[in-house]
Each structure stands twice: as C-alpha cells, then as structure tokens.
C-alpha cells in the first residue's frame, strides 16, 4: 500500500510537470505579445513595451522563460530592481499587470470563495441526490419514483445561469425570503451567518443540476445492486430489507459515486464560472473569466495549473478512497 502511494504521488508530480510545460507553451506560443498587453489596449509606445518586456522577463527565449517560471514556484520571483521592484514570494505563479498583483495572491484570495461554493454545493447535491436516488429505487415504479423522475428532468434541463437568475428573481427580489446579497463575499471565519446567507442561493443553483444527475445515477446503481446474487443471499439469511439496503446495497452501489463526486468536485474547484458570475462572487471562475477577457496571461496560466493540480490530486484521493471501499481493488494494487 505504501509503495503504491509513493508510486502514485510520483506519477502525479510527473503529470503535473508535463501539464505545466504544456500550459506554459500554449500561452507563450499564442500570437499575442504579452509585453504589449501590459501597457494597455491603445498603447503604441515601443519604449514602454520594450521596458516592460525586460521587466517581466519576456525578452529571453521561451524555454528560459519556462525555467524562470518554474524557479519562481520554489523561490519566488522579483520584477525590476531598486525602488520599483515587485516581489512575488514563493510559490510565485507570475505577476498580473492588469491587477497589479502577484497571481498567487489573487488565487489565494479567490480560492476560499470557490472552495466554499464547491464544498457547500457538493454536500447539498450529495445529500439530495443520494436520498432521492435511494428512495426512488426503494419505491421503484411508485409515486415517489415518478416524482424523482420529474425532478431529474427539470434539474438536467435547466441551465445553471437560468436556475441562478430565477432563484434571484423569485427568492430574493419578489418573495424577499433572503435579503439581496450585498455584493461582497464574507469569509466563513468572519461571519458564518452572513457567509451562509450569501452562498445559499449559489449552493442551490450549483447543486440543482448535479443533484438531479446523482439522483438518476444512485437510483440506477441501487436497483442494479438489489438484483445482485449477494443481495439474494442476504435475504436468504433472514436479514430485514432495511439492513439489506443500508449495509449490503448502499456500499456496493455508492462506490462508483466516489469517482464521480471526486472528479465533479475537482472540476468545480477550478471555478464555477457561470454561478460566480450570476451571483457576483469573487471566486476563481470569475478571476479566470476576467483574465481571459483581458488577455491576462499570467493569471490564465496560474489558474489552469491550479485546476490541473486539483484534478490530479482528486484523482489520487478517489483512487485511494476506492481501495478503501472495495477490497478487491486493495489487493490488485
């Protein structure tokens, strides 16, 4: 098990390294001049552009830039010298000229927002999805099952931005159940109540579509597991349906869900662009979207790398979790 873990972590690091190179290469080879972009859209002053090029290190060949970039991750990086010097401490992902801040600082500020959004939404959709899925499977063909099917249809058909806007229009503006989010995200540790109040609708918005998908998935998984031979064995032992469902069915049915939830969560941590935009949350999604619009390459590279790292890490966690759930995987590894 330990050897497996070491091997997996080493592979993950290698993948991350390859991804970082690919991402850096893609953006370096784009037909934009990053130095020209730093001086504003209508800037035609070659002197400033050249000065910025040297200042930001775009004057050296691409592969050297990549090495400097990698070095910045470990030891930090300084731009310019003397009084105008800007220092981005390790792990430095670069410096955004648009925002006038180190990319790492921007990401560190945005990540808690996205994480709060993702974790809350995932808990919500897992609870709703698993509960409805199990109920629908248990009462297959009856009204509870039909109701869940309707929920699934609505949930999968409505796009996130529409769900979000509808919730805003009705829950906040028309019915005034929740006060209008003042616009500023409040960290959890500062004011938990306000934090939850601001995030509640985004959670519901994000969770709605996923909960519908998970309901369908769990329903099918439970129905399939209930037809397994080992469930018949459990019945033949004299176990009650409740124990059979809880102990024998759920564990087998929900194992594949770990994979799905892990990867969905990883994707969400990279930023929920639409939801963050609709609810004006300063998360990674909004940061990335802004960066794309502004051609802010350092932020795009940083955010992409972070997303890749999250996906790779979640993959590792999911595999370990799977081994924990399914003993057959444990031995094979």
């Amino acid at each position: 098990m330990f050897g497996y873990l070491v091997r997996r972590i080493a592979t993950s690091l290698a993948i991350l390294f390859a991804v970082s190179f690919a991402v850096y290469a893609i953006f370096a080879l784009l037909p934009f001049d990053p130095a020209a972009l730093t001086c504003g859209k209508n800037c035609n002053n070659p002197a400033i552009i050249e000065a910025n090029r040297i200042r930001l290190g775009y004057d050296i060949p691409f592969w050297q830039q990549y090495i400097v970039f990698l070095g910045g991750l470990f030891v930090g990086r300084s731009y310019s010298e003397g009084a105008a010097a800007i220092h981005c401490p390790a792990p430095s992902l670069g410096y955004s000229f648009n925002e006038h801040e180190c990319v790492t600082t921007l990401i560190v500020r945005a990540l808690p927002v996205t994480a709060s959004l993702a974790i809350g939404a995932m808990i919500l959709w897992l609870v709703v999805g698993i509960t409805l899925g199990v109920v629908a499977a248990r009462f297959r063909g009856r009204s509870a099952d039909t109701a869940s099917t309707i929920f699934v249809l609505i949930g999968t058909s409505l796009p996130t931005f529409l769900t979000g806007l509808l919730l805003l229009v009705f829950v906040v503006i028309k019915w005034k159940i929740i006060p209008f989010p003042a616009g500023n995200y409040t960290p959890l540790l500062e004011n938990p109540f306000e934090w939850a109040q601001i995030l509640f609708l985004p959670w519901v918005t994000l969770a709605f579509a996923s909960a519908a998908l998970y309901t369908r998935f769990v329903r099918n998984a439970v129905i399939e597991t209930l037809s397994e031979d080992f469930i018949r064995t459990a019945r033949a032992k004299g176990l009650s349906e409740k124990v059979i469902l809880r102990k024998h069915t759920l564990r087998a049915a929900l194992a594949p869900l770990a994979t799905m939830a892990g990867l969905d969560f990883a994707a969400l941590l990279g930023g929920a662009i639409l939801t963050e935009k609709v609810f004006n949350l300063p998360g990674l999604g909004r940061l990335s979207l802004g960066a794309v619009i502004e051609y802010d390459l350092p932020i795009i590279v940083g955010a992409t790398l972070l997303s890749a790292a999250i996906v790779i890490t979640m993959n590792l966690i999911v595999d370990l979790l799977y081994a924990f759930i399914d003993p057959r995987v444990r031995v094979a590894s």
Partner: peptide
Amino acid sequence: RGKDVAMVFQDPMSALHPY
C-alpha cells in the same frame, strides 16, 4: 429463513458480498 430453512446458491462467485 437462514435458521430453519437455509439455501446454497448456484454461483459462489457472485453469491457472496465482495466488500
């Protein structure tokens, strides 16, 4: 079930819970 009347099934590969 399982006390007075017990059952052995056809396929022992799938009749035992794998987990």
